[in-house]
Design a protein around this nucleic acid. Structure first.
Lengths: 138, 138
DNA sequence: CTCTGTGCAAAGCGTTTGCAAACGA
DNA sequence: TCGTTTGCAAACGCTTTGCACAGAG
């Protein structure tokens, strides 16, 4: 496991074991929701409280270290903040993947047309992933 | 006010006055959240229940007549379902606007690259609208 | 030592459900 | 008339809060 002490320090958060394992779990999974995160953490900290997980998620979102990803009809998932990218969500198995996308020129276009000063672009594609397509055609 | 009897009938929903005014309100506003919808409806039906508004919103979403639009850090808003389009959200004043966008070729691209069978594309731009930009520069 | 973070329990908030009466078809 | 919808109140589920103790810096 990486050492997240410095990262947490730079965000003015104390490096508690709970937080370090939380970050590790989020990084390993790519995207995770509260329940799965809580369940994984209970393996390491049997007495960890759901409230603690919420509090930490919120403080890390507030300072920008984490990003919340909302998915239609599902619970939000959390990811480490990273460069702009889109999401691919499989409606069959619930898998969420990152996709590289050049949204700069899209938002430039929209910006010109609308006059908006665009600060963020959120793109999610919903569909069925290749493995689930195979299962369907059986 | 338009007559929504036929529309409701085609969705197998009874044409109650509450529903007809709900649709009217949503159409007039373009996008509306539960609280504002409930408040407007109370002007016409002083005893309307929030539960009724929820039930109707949900049944109209289920049959595809309405679409829910999720916005980061804000309550969902509802719109009449229409052709694929993106949303522009002003983070200063909370205004939500539709933008025409040709997402077909984007999703085709993503589809080819990822192998996903894409069924829906959700695009939201966050930024500051022209009026709010003027206010800021004062 | 000081202040932040943790765990627990309770409170809070938005949404859904159950039910009897009212209403639309 | 029959099945759906309404309004009300209670229940529900997820998230946040308050507090005393523990732990990081």
């Amino acid at each position: 496991m990486k050492d997240y002490r410095e990262v947490l320090k730079s965000y003015n958060l104390k490096a508690t074991p709970q937080r370090m394992y939380m970050i590790d779990e989020i990084e390993k999974s790519g995207h995770i929701d509260i329940d799965n995160l809580y369940e994984s953490l209970k393996n390491i900290f049997p007495y960890i409280s759901l409230a603690t997980v919420y509090k930490n998620i919120n403080s890390m979102i507030d300072n920008g270290f984490l990003t919340e990803v909302k998915i239609p009809k599902h619970k939000a998932r959390y990811e480490l903040s990273k460069d702009s990218h889109a999401h691919l969500f499989c409606t069959k198995c619930g898998k969420l993947e990152d996709v590289k996308i050049d949204d700069a020129w899209i938002s430039n276009n929209i910006s010109k047309e609308s006059g908006y000063n665009i600060t963020n672009t959120l793109i999610t594609f919903e569909g069925v992933c290749p493995p689930c397509q195979k299962k369907e055609s059986r």
